[in-house]
Amino acid sequence: MVKHDPEKFATLFEDFRKKYRVDFSGYASASLNRRIERFLSIHHFVSESEFVEKLLSDHLFFDLFIKEITVNTTEMFRDPECWMAVREKVLPLVTGYPGIRIWHAGCSSGEEVYSMAILLKEEGLYDKVSIVATDLNRDVIQTAMSGTYGRKSLELNEENYRRAGGRFALSDYYSSNGTSYTMNSELLSRVKFMKFDLSSGMPFSKFDIIFCRNVLIYFNKGLQENVFKLFRESLFKRGSVVIGKKESMAYYSDFSAFNEINLQEKIYQLK
C-alpha cells in the first residue's frame, strides 16, 4: 500500500486548484488525511508517483477521488428539532414574500433538499420558492437528481420526519421499488442543481435562506471564515442561515452582523 505523506501531498493542492478548480488547502487536516489513507487502502497503486500521476491526468479518477475523500453521509430531517425550528421560526419570516430564494450549500445526495421541499409543501409555500442546490461533487448531484435511495435509510428517515413534526406520512412523498425508494419528482420542480466549490468564495446569487449543515466541520477556521463571508454576501437583508448543530459561527470575525434566531439549532439571521 502507498503510504500517505500529508506534507508532501499538500504540495499538490496548487496543481489541483489550477487544473480542476478545486481547493483542498482549507480543509481540516485530521479528517482529510484519514480519508486519503482510506482511499489508498481501498485502491491499489504500485507507487506514489502512479497515484499522483493519475490524479493529475485523469479527470474521472480525480472526480472519484473527491467523491471518496469528501464526506457525503446525510439523512432526511437530520436533527428533527432543527427542522421543527425551521418550520416554526424561519418560514414565518418569509411567508409574506412574493418569492423566496433558498440555497442548499453542499447538498450532497439531496436528502435535505427533499426535506426542505416537503416542509415548504406542507406550509403552502412551495409554489413561490426557487431553490438552488450545489455540491462539489457531480456524482452526488446525480444521486440527488434521481431521488433514489437505498431501502436501509428509510426507517431512520421516516422516524426523523415524524419527529420533525411532519404533517402526513413520508410515504406520501416517495414510491417504493423493492430495494430502493424514489422521491416524487415534483419535489424538484423548483430546484436547480449546480456544481459549486464553496472554497472558491465567489457569490453567484442572493438568497433568503441558506442551508449549510455539517459541511463547515470539514474546513479549517480560515476557510470557515471565507465561507461565512460568502454567505453574508449571498444573503438578502434579514436572510437566514442554518448550519449544523455542532458547528459554530462564533469564530466569524463579522459575527455581530447576525442575530441568533435559535442558538441551540444554530440558526442565524442577517441584521
Partner: peptide, 17 residues
C-alpha cells in the same frame, strides 16, 4: 458525530460513516 483531534490545540467533528 466522530470526534477528531485536529492538532495540539484544536478538536474537529465529522459525520463520516
Amino acid at each position: 458525530y466522530h470526534l477528531l483531534i485536529e492538532n495540539r490545540r484544536t478538536l474537529s467533528l465529522s459525520t463520516e460513516e
